[in-house]
């Protein structure tokens, strides 16, 4: 859920854009990181641990901790807490460690 009224801050978000989360078209603001956009949509689980398959969400939100790895436009292990939403972007929950195609 987004904050609409705040005693100190004003949020200038611009126009909504759409991107794809697990194949489904969803909307967000281009000022938001993927993690923030998914949060606003009520999505907490961003992926799962590679071996025990436990659900994973974000922890640090500044690109330090690797808890929020997802697959973005076919590239695995992307830190979605520091990557901004772009129109048409394909964001997917990652299963396993991901394979990098060179």
């Amino acid at each position: 859920m987004r904050i609409e009224e705040h005693p100190v801050l004003n949020f200038e978000r611009g126009e909504k854009v759409s991107f794809f989360f697990n194949g489904q078209e969803v909307e967000a603001y281009p000022t938001e990181t993927i993690a923030a956009a998914l949060h606003a949509l009520g999505v907490r689980k961003l992926g799962e641990s590679p071996e025990l398959h436990r659900p994973r969400g974000l922890f640090c939100a500044i690109g330090n901790c690797s808890s929020c790895f997802m697959t973005v436009d076919d590239e695995p292990n992307m830190r979605v807490c520091v990557i901004k939403v772009k129109p048409g972007m394909r964001v997917e929950e990652q299963h396993g460690k991901g394979v990098i195609c060179l």
């Binding site: 904050i3 801050l9 978000r13 938001e32 606003a40 994973r56 939100a61």
Partner: peptide, 23 residues
């Protein structure tokens, strides 16, 4: 402690004060 919804305090600030999203 690995459940989604366990956040560092900085992450909570980032979500609500930078993105304007309720954590």
């Amino acid at each position: 402690n690995d459940l989604p919804g366990i956040y560092g305090a900085g992450a909570v600030q980032t979500l609500m004060n930078v993105a304007g999203v309720k954590p």
